[in-house]
Protein backbone atom coordinates (compact mmCIF):
# COMPACT_ATOMS: atom_id res chain seq x y z
CA UNK A 1 0.00 0.00 0.00
CA UNK A 2 3.03 2.30 0.39
CA UNK A 3 2.90 2.90 -3.34
CA UNK A 4 -0.25 4.87 -2.72
CA UNK A 5 1.07 6.82 0.27
CA UNK A 6 1.52 10.13 -1.57
CA UNK A 7 -1.71 9.81 -3.54
CA UNK A 8 -3.81 8.88 -0.50
CA UNK A 9 -2.21 11.56 1.64
CA UNK A 10 -2.91 14.16 -1.07
CA UNK A 11 -6.58 13.14 -1.26
CA UNK A 12 -6.93 13.24 2.53
CA UNK A 13 -5.09 16.56 2.74
CA UNK A 14 -7.57 17.98 0.23
CA UNK A 15 -10.32 16.98 2.64
CA UNK A 16 -8.78 18.56 5.75
CA UNK A 17 -7.82 21.71 3.82
CA UNK A 18 -11.49 22.14 2.97
CA UNK A 19 -12.15 22.11 6.71
CA UNK A 20 -9.88 25.13 6.97
CA UNK A 21 -11.23 27.02 3.96
CA UNK A 22 -14.84 26.31 4.96
CA UNK A 23 -14.41 27.47 8.52
CA UNK A 24 -12.36 30.60 8.02
CA UNK A 25 -13.41 31.52 11.56
CA UNK A 26 -10.76 29.06 12.83
CA UNK A 27 -8.06 31.07 11.06
CA UNK A 28 -9.54 34.33 12.38
CA UNK A 29 -9.75 32.94 15.93
CA UNK A 30 -6.15 31.82 15.67
CA UNK A 31 -5.11 35.29 14.62
CA UNK A 32 -7.26 37.31 17.06
CA UNK A 33 -5.37 36.42 20.26
CA UNK A 34 -1.88 37.29 18.96
CA UNK A 35 -3.16 40.45 17.28
CA UNK A 36 -4.94 41.56 20.47
CA UNK A 37 -1.73 40.93 22.41
CA UNK A 38 0.22 42.90 19.87
CA UNK A 39 -2.18 45.85 20.24
CA UNK A 40 -2.05 45.64 24.05
CA UNK A 41 1.70 45.44 24.26
CA UNK A 42 2.43 48.07 21.65
CA UNK A 43 -0.16 50.67 22.69
CA UNK A 44 -0.54 49.94 26.43
CA UNK A 45 2.52 48.31 28.02
CA UNK A 46 5.07 48.94 25.29
CA UNK A 47 5.87 52.47 26.40
CA UNK A 48 7.12 51.15 29.73
CA UNK A 49 9.48 48.59 28.21
CA UNK A 50 12.87 49.79 27.11
CA UNK A 51 13.97 48.08 23.93
CA UNK A 52 16.48 50.71 22.86
CA UNK A 53 16.14 52.25 19.44
CA UNK A 54 13.97 49.45 17.98
CA UNK A 55 10.22 50.05 17.62
CA UNK A 56 8.46 47.83 20.17
CA UNK A 57 6.30 46.13 17.55
CA UNK A 58 9.46 45.09 15.72
CA UNK A 59 10.96 43.86 18.97
CA UNK A 60 7.99 41.72 19.98
CA UNK A 61 6.87 40.33 16.60
CA UNK A 62 8.96 37.12 16.80
CA UNK A 63 7.27 36.21 20.11
CA UNK A 64 3.84 37.04 18.71
CA UNK A 65 4.49 34.75 15.75
CA UNK A 66 5.29 31.87 18.10
CA UNK A 67 2.07 32.53 20.03
CA UNK A 68 0.20 32.47 16.72
CA UNK A 69 1.62 29.02 15.95
CA UNK A 70 0.86 27.74 19.45
CA UNK A 71 -2.78 28.79 19.21
CA UNK A 72 -3.03 27.57 15.60
CA UNK A 73 -1.98 23.99 16.35
CA UNK A 74 -4.78 23.64 18.90
CA UNK A 75 -7.12 23.49 15.87
CA UNK A 76 -5.04 20.66 14.50
CA UNK A 77 -5.71 18.74 17.71
CA UNK A 78 -9.38 19.70 17.43
CA UNK A 79 -9.73 18.51 13.82
CA UNK A 80 -8.05 15.21 14.59
CA UNK A 81 -10.16 14.76 17.73
CA UNK A 82 -13.32 15.33 15.66
CA UNK A 83 -12.22 12.61 13.21
CA UNK A 84 -11.64 10.22 16.10
CA UNK A 85 -15.06 10.91 17.63
CA UNK A 86 -17.05 10.83 14.40
CA UNK A 87 -15.66 7.43 13.44
CA UNK A 88 -14.09 8.80 10.25
CA UNK A 89 -10.65 7.89 11.55
CA UNK A 90 -11.74 4.27 11.95
CA UNK A 91 -13.44 4.30 8.58
CA UNK A 92 -10.18 5.37 6.92
CA UNK A 93 -8.15 2.87 8.95
CA UNK A 94 -10.40 0.03 7.80
CA UNK A 95 -9.94 0.97 4.14
CA UNK A 96 -7.22 -0.29 1.79
CA UNK A 97 -5.19 2.92 1.99
CA UNK A 98 -1.81 4.01 3.33
CA UNK A 99 -3.01 4.26 6.91
CA UNK A 100 -0.50 6.81 8.18
CA UNK A 101 -1.66 9.16 5.42
CA UNK A 102 -4.57 10.08 7.67
CA UNK A 103 -2.17 11.61 10.20
CA UNK A 104 0.09 13.22 7.60
CA UNK A 105 -2.93 14.91 6.01
CA UNK A 106 -3.63 16.61 9.32
CA UNK A 107 0.02 17.59 9.69
CA UNK A 108 0.26 19.13 6.21
CA UNK A 109 -3.03 20.97 6.78
CA UNK A 110 -1.68 22.30 10.06
CA UNK A 111 1.36 23.73 8.25
CA UNK A 112 -0.80 25.39 5.58
CA UNK A 113 -3.30 26.85 8.10
CA UNK A 114 -0.48 28.22 10.27
CA UNK A 115 1.33 29.79 7.32
CA UNK A 116 -1.95 31.54 6.48
CA UNK A 117 -2.29 32.85 10.05
CA UNK A 118 1.35 33.94 10.19
CA UNK A 119 1.02 35.90 6.94
CA UNK A 120 -2.03 37.74 8.33
CA UNK A 121 -0.27 38.55 11.63
CA UNK A 122 2.85 39.84 9.83
CA UNK A 123 0.59 41.96 7.61
CA UNK A 124 -1.08 43.55 10.62
CA UNK A 125 2.32 44.09 12.26
CA UNK A 126 3.45 45.94 9.12
CA UNK A 127 0.42 48.22 9.45
CA UNK A 128 1.37 48.83 13.07
CA UNK A 129 4.85 49.96 12.13
CA UNK A 130 6.91 46.76 11.99
CA UNK A 131 9.89 47.37 9.74
CA UNK A 132 12.75 45.18 8.60
CA UNK A 133 15.50 45.54 6.09
CA UNK A 134 15.86 41.77 5.88
CA UNK A 135 16.53 40.42 2.41
CA UNK A 136 15.21 37.26 0.82
CA UNK A 137 17.73 34.87 2.44
CA UNK A 138 16.90 36.20 5.93
CA UNK A 139 13.16 35.93 5.25
CA UNK A 140 13.63 32.38 4.00
CA UNK A 141 15.58 31.54 7.14
CA UNK A 142 12.78 33.01 9.29
CA UNK A 143 10.17 31.05 7.33
CA UNK A 144 12.22 27.87 7.68
CA UNK A 145 12.59 28.19 11.45
CA UNK A 146 8.89 29.03 11.92
CA UNK A 147 7.87 26.07 9.72
CA UNK A 148 10.09 23.73 11.70
CA UNK A 149 8.62 25.08 14.95
CA UNK A 150 5.08 24.62 13.53
CA UNK A 151 5.92 21.06 12.51
CA UNK A 152 7.25 20.28 16.01
CA UNK A 153 4.18 21.77 17.75
CA UNK A 154 1.88 20.03 15.25
CA UNK A 155 3.24 16.64 16.28
CA UNK A 156 2.68 17.64 19.91
CA UNK A 157 -0.92 18.50 18.92
CA UNK A 158 -1.38 15.08 17.35
CA UNK A 159 -0.95 13.42 20.76
CA UNK A 160 -4.03 14.96 22.47
CA UNK A 161 -5.87 14.89 19.13
CA UNK A 162 -5.59 11.10 19.16
CA UNK A 163 -6.04 10.44 22.84
CA UNK A 164 -8.07 13.26 24.43
CA UNK A 165 -11.35 12.37 26.10
CA UNK A 166 -13.06 15.68 25.37
CA UNK A 167 -12.83 18.66 23.01
CA UNK A 168 -11.57 20.82 25.87
CA UNK A 169 -8.91 18.25 26.65
CA UNK A 170 -7.84 18.18 23.02
CA UNK A 171 -7.16 21.92 23.00
CA UNK A 172 -5.85 22.38 26.54
CA UNK A 173 -2.26 21.43 25.70
CA UNK A 174 -1.91 24.70 23.78
CA UNK A 175 -2.25 26.97 26.85
CA UNK A 176 1.20 26.32 28.30
CA UNK A 177 2.66 26.68 24.81
CA UNK A 178 0.94 30.05 24.38
CA UNK A 179 2.21 31.09 27.81
CA UNK A 180 5.85 30.07 27.24
CA UNK A 181 6.84 33.17 25.21
CA UNK A 182 5.91 35.38 28.21
CA UNK A 183 8.72 33.84 30.22
CA UNK A 184 11.27 34.39 27.49
CA UNK A 185 13.01 37.21 25.71
CA UNK A 186 9.90 37.72 23.55
CA UNK A 187 8.40 40.76 25.30
CA UNK A 188 10.97 42.06 27.76
CA UNK A 189 14.75 41.63 27.81
CA UNK A 190 15.60 38.71 30.13
CA UNK A 191 18.13 40.86 32.03
CA UNK A 192 15.20 42.52 33.84
CA UNK A 193 13.99 39.21 35.34
CA UNK A 194 14.88 37.90 38.82
CA UNK A 195 17.49 35.09 39.06
CA UNK A 196 15.65 31.77 38.70
CA UNK A 197 13.08 33.16 36.25
CA UNK A 198 15.87 34.63 34.19
CA UNK A 199 17.68 31.31 34.19
CA UNK A 200 14.55 29.53 32.98
CA UNK A 201 13.84 32.20 30.36
CA UNK A 202 17.34 31.98 28.97
CA UNK A 203 17.35 28.21 28.79
CA UNK A 204 13.95 27.46 27.31
CA UNK A 205 13.41 26.93 23.57
CA UNK A 206 11.36 30.06 22.87
CA UNK A 207 14.17 32.48 23.75
CA UNK A 208 16.64 31.01 21.28
CA UNK A 209 14.02 30.97 18.52
CA UNK A 210 12.86 34.53 19.30
CA UNK A 211 16.45 35.83 19.41
CA UNK A 212 17.29 34.13 16.11
CA UNK A 213 14.24 35.52 14.31
CA UNK A 214 14.82 38.95 15.84
CA UNK A 215 18.45 38.98 14.69
CA UNK A 216 17.43 37.87 11.19
CA UNK A 217 14.86 40.68 10.95
CA UNK A 218 17.42 43.19 12.29
CA UNK A 219 20.09 41.97 9.84
CA UNK A 220 22.42 41.10 12.70
CA UNK A 221 24.61 38.00 12.70
CA UNK A 222 22.61 35.23 14.37
CA UNK A 223 25.52 33.60 16.18
CA UNK A 224 25.04 30.32 18.01
CA UNK A 225 21.39 31.09 18.74
CA UNK A 226 20.28 29.64 15.43
CA UNK A 227 21.88 26.27 16.23
CA UNK A 228 20.31 26.23 19.69
CA UNK A 229 16.96 27.11 18.10
CA UNK A 230 17.25 24.42 15.44
CA UNK A 231 18.32 21.83 18.00
CA UNK A 232 15.35 22.66 20.21
CA UNK A 233 12.92 22.41 17.29
CA UNK A 234 14.43 19.15 16.05
CA UNK A 235 14.48 17.73 19.58
CA UNK A 236 10.84 18.62 20.26
CA UNK A 237 9.90 17.24 16.84
CA UNK A 238 11.59 13.88 17.42
CA UNK A 239 10.19 13.40 20.94
CA UNK A 240 6.67 14.56 19.98
CA UNK A 241 6.69 12.34 16.88
CA UNK A 242 7.68 9.32 18.97
CA UNK A 243 4.89 9.94 21.49
CA UNK A 244 2.37 10.65 18.71
CA UNK A 245 3.27 7.37 17.01
CA UNK A 246 2.88 5.53 20.31
CA UNK A 247 -0.58 7.09 20.77
CA UNK A 248 -1.41 6.19 17.16
CA UNK A 249 -0.40 2.56 17.65
CA UNK A 250 -2.60 2.35 20.72
CA UNK A 251 -5.55 3.41 18.56
CA UNK A 252 -5.09 0.97 15.71
CA UNK A 253 -4.22 -2.70 15.52
Amino acid sequence: MTAYFLRDTAVLTGRTLRHVTRSVDTVITTVITPVAMMLMFVYVFGGAIDTGSVAYVTYMLPGILLITIASGVSYTAYRLYTDMKSGLFERFQSMPIARSGVLWAHVVTSLVANVLSLVIVVGIALLMGFRTGAGLPAWLAVAGILLLFTLALTWIAVIPGLSAGSVEGAGAFAYPLIFLPFVSSAFVPTETMPGPVRWFAEHQPVTSIVDTVRDLFAQRPVGDDIWTALLWCAGILVVAYAFAMAAYRRKIA
Binding site: S23, G87, L88
Partner: peptide
Protein backbone atom coordinates in the same frame (compact mmCIF):
# COMPACT_ATOMS: atom_id res chain seq x y z
CA UNK B 1 -16.13 -2.10 4.33
CA UNK B 2 -17.03 -0.95 7.80
CA UNK B 3 -20.04 1.08 8.81
CA UNK B 4 -19.46 1.85 12.44
CA UNK B 5 -21.85 2.55 15.27
CA UNK B 6 -22.05 6.24 14.45
CA UNK B 7 -22.44 7.46 10.89
CA UNK B 8 -18.81 8.12 9.97
CA UNK B 9 -19.36 10.93 7.52
CA UNK B 10 -17.52 14.22 7.09
CA UNK B 11 -19.87 16.95 8.30
CA UNK B 12 -17.99 19.76 6.61
Amino acid sequence: SLTGQFAAVDEV
